[in-house]
Computed example of a mutant assay.
Amino acid sequence: MKITIIAGARPNFMKIAPIIEAIKKKQSEGVDIQYRLIHTGQHYDKKMSGDFFEQLGIPEPDANLEAGGGTQAEQTAAIMIRFERDLLENPTDLVLVVGDVTSTMACAITAQKLQVKVAHVEAGIRSGDWTMPEEINRLVTDSITNYFFTTSEKANENLRKNDIEEGRIFFVGNTMIDTLLKHRSNFRKPRVWDELRLSERAYIVMTLHRPANVDEEGKLRVLMDEIIQHSQGMPLVFPVHPRTAKILQKLGVSHPRLHMIEPLSYLEFNYLVERAKAVVTDSGGITEEASVMRIPCMTLRDNTERPETTTMGTNELIGTRPKAIRPAMERLFAGKWKQGGDIPLWDGRAAERIVSRLLIEFQNTEASAATAAV
């Protein structure tokens, strides 16, 4: 069996790393399974070259489509054109896409037009917010997917509502958590830990990048003021997204306790999260990691595509209104934040389940084709 694996942005690589490892394990057992890794080049991040691949044990991609830059439409077109060429030159039995970035949607469409089956890892998640480009990517990808690998029962329900047959939905768990659990013992102390004299449970980690929070300059300033004012003297460690950094610099936002630092590597960032008092974020993936590590997480969004982090984890949606910060901080420092619990199948074995299921489905397809030829 030949599988072409697609990744286009930093979170994608965290999700595909354990899948590649599971494939290699099957190969070591004598199973006839091969993979080809394609980096679409959608996002470039210096922390994703060199040390990032080494830290997560990801091999260098077999091809980089270098399709970054431009508008979303231009990027989608570039990915499709270049991936089509690569797919024609390197035939495969299946294209595996993960997550919900532009590369996910563009490569799924390209594969289906060439009559190549598609497997979507992290299928079925929905925010219900069509202003998010990721939501459009999810909807389109799931409308043309053959095999749906899900992270939660809620995702299963979403797919059933769209009349997806039960036999094509596979509840396997979360490959991002596979990566987290595998590397947790290897988290690496960043330089900023000693530079800022940080100590466990005595600082807050922040990440902000979504347009609803950072595009309205006046609102962003008030949001930052509220966080600073109500964080009870704790240092705020803020690895800043380049886009957000430009806006904050323009606004002149600064404070002695606000430490805006360069983006960190995967192992360094999670070292900080694991030891933090809390996380303030608008990122979906971070809510998953914080929940598994039982770190209080305040999400500055009005919706989430990962509701299991709020119903079973440590995440709470507090919305995008700056005035929501104070009561949330008061609950945190009063020790009234929820503890969270185990989330079903987030146990570090999702990738094993995915690869095993793909092999079964491929064998079934081969057997059906052989029977039809008789």
Results as ranks from 00 to 15, higher is better:
Thr371Gln: 11
Ala63Leu: 09
Ile16Arg: 12
Tyr271Phe: 15
Asn146Ala: 01
Arg184Trp: 05
His120Gln: 07
Ile177Phe: 06
Pro211Ser: 03
Pro256Val: 08
Ala290Val: 00
Tyr271Met: 04
Ser368Trp: 12
Ala155Pro: 09
Glu217Met: 13
Ser283Ala: 12
Tyr147Ala: 07
Asp93Glu: 09
Val101Ala: 12
His43Glu: 00
Phe171Asn: 13
Thr299Phe: 04
Glu217Ala: 11
Asp100Met: 03
Leu96Ser: 03
Thr311Asp: 02
Glu308Pro: 06
Pro344Gln: 08
Asn364Gln: 10
Leu88Thr: 02
Ile169Gly: 13
Gly319Asn: 14
Leu317Val: 11
Thr141Ser: 04
Thr287His: 07
Ile318Gly: 09
Ala22Ile: 01
His230Phe: 15
Ala278Gln: 05
Pro11Thr: 01
Arg353Phe: 09
Ser368Tyr: 13
Leu220Phe: 14
Ala22Pro: 09
Thr104Asp: 05
Lys182Glu: 01
Thr207Asp: 07
Gly50Gln: 10
Gly341Trp: 06
Ala77Arg: 06
Ala290Ser: 14
Gln112Cys: 06
Ser185Ile: 01
Glu289Pro: 02
Tyr44Ala: 11
Leu96Ile: 03
Phe83Trp: 13
Pro296Tyr: 04
Gly313Leu: 13
Lys154Ser: 04
Gly285Ser: 00
Leu196Phe: 15
Ser368Arg: 14
Glu134Trp: 12
Met80Asn: 07
Leu267Asn: 11
Ala212Cys: 02
Leu267Lys: 10
Gln115Asn: 14
Ile19Glu: 09
Glu134Leu: 10
Thr320Arg: 03
Tyr271Ala: 02
Ile58Phe: 09
Lys250Gln: 07
Thr365Tyr: 14
Leu258Ser: 10
Glu200Trp: 10
Asp194Met: 08
Ser291Ala: 00
Arg191His: 07
Leu196Gly: 07
Ser103Tyr: 15
Ile23Leu: 01
Ser152Arg: 08
Ala367Ile: 06
Glu166Pro: 02
Asn186Asp: 13
Ile177Ala: 04
Arg201Trp: 06
Phe269Ser: 02
Glu74Pro: 12
Leu223Asp: 02
Ile5Ser: 06
Arg82Cys: 05
Leu94Trp: 10
Gly41His: 14
Met260Tyr: 08
Met224Cys: 11
Lys117His: 13
Asn186Gly: 02
Ile58Asn: 01
Leu114Ser: 11
Val121Cys: 08
Ala7Trp: 05
Gly8Thr: 02
Ser283Glu: 01
Arg349Cys: 11
Pro327Glu: 02
Ile109Cys: 04
Asp86Lys: 07
Met312Thr: 08
Asn12Gln: 12
Gly30Lys: 06
Ala245Met: 12
